[in-house]
Simulated scan of single mutants.
Amino acid sequence: MDAPPTSQVYRRFESRNEFQTAVRAAFELAAEQGSRELWLCDTDYADWPLGERAVVEALTRWAYGHRRLVVLAGSFDEIVRRHARWVQWRREWAHIIECRAIEQLPPQQVPRMWLAPGQHLVRLLDPLHYRGVVENHGVDLVAAHETLNEMLQLSVDAFPAHTLGL
Rank of each mutant, 00 (worst) to 15 (best):
F19W: 09
L124V: 03
V70R: 07
A25H: 08
L59V: 07
L38P: 07
V134G: 04
C99I: 01
R11D: 12
Y10S: 13
L115R: 02
Q104Y: 11
S75D: 09
R81Q: 14
R68G: 09
A144K: 01
E98N: 10
N149K: 15
G74N: 07
V142A: 13
D2W: 07
V133G: 02
R81P: 01
F27D: 01
S155C: 07
E103T: 15
T43E: 11
D2E: 13
P107A: 10
D126P: 00
W86M: 04
Y130T: 04
P106W: 05
Q88S: 13
L164F: 13
A73N: 04
P4L: 05
F13C: 03
Y45G: 03
A144C: 06
A143Y: 11
A22F: 00
L124F: 07
A22Q: 00
S15D: 09
E14G: 15
W93L: 09
A58Y: 04
V55G: 04
A161W: 09
W39C: 00
A84H: 14
R53T: 12
V80E: 14
I96D: 00
Y64W: 12
R53G: 09
V139L: 15
Q119R: 12
A30T: 01
I96V: 13
Q33R: 15
A30Y: 00
R81C: 08
G74E: 07
S155A: 14
A143C: 11
R91Q: 15
P160C: 07
R131H: 12
E14W: 10
A73F: 04
E14I: 06
V80A: 13
L40N: 03
V110R: 06
E32D: 11
L50G: 01
R91Y: 08
A30K: 00
L128M: 12
P4M: 06
L125F: 05
H120S: 06
L141A: 06
T163I: 14
V122P: 00
T60M: 09
L148A: 08
L72M: 07
V9D: 06
H95L: 12
L50Y: 07
V80H: 11
P117V: 01
H95D: 15
R100S: 07
R61I: 03
P160K: 08
V55M: 05
V70N: 02
V142Y: 11
L164K: 11
Y45N: 05
E135K: 05
H66L: 14
R123F: 09
A54S: 14
G118W: 02
A144W: 01
H137M: 12
E92N: 14
E57Q: 11
G34H: 01
Y10L: 15
W62T: 02
F13K: 05
A26D: 02
V156L: 14
E146C: 12
L50T: 02
D126M: 01
A161D: 10
T147D: 14
N17A: 14
L59Q: 01
V122H: 03
D126S: 06
L59R: 03
E78T: 11
A116K: 00
E52G: 02
A26N: 00
L40H: 05
L164H: 14
P127G: 06
M113V: 08
R131E: 11
S15N: 07
L164P: 00
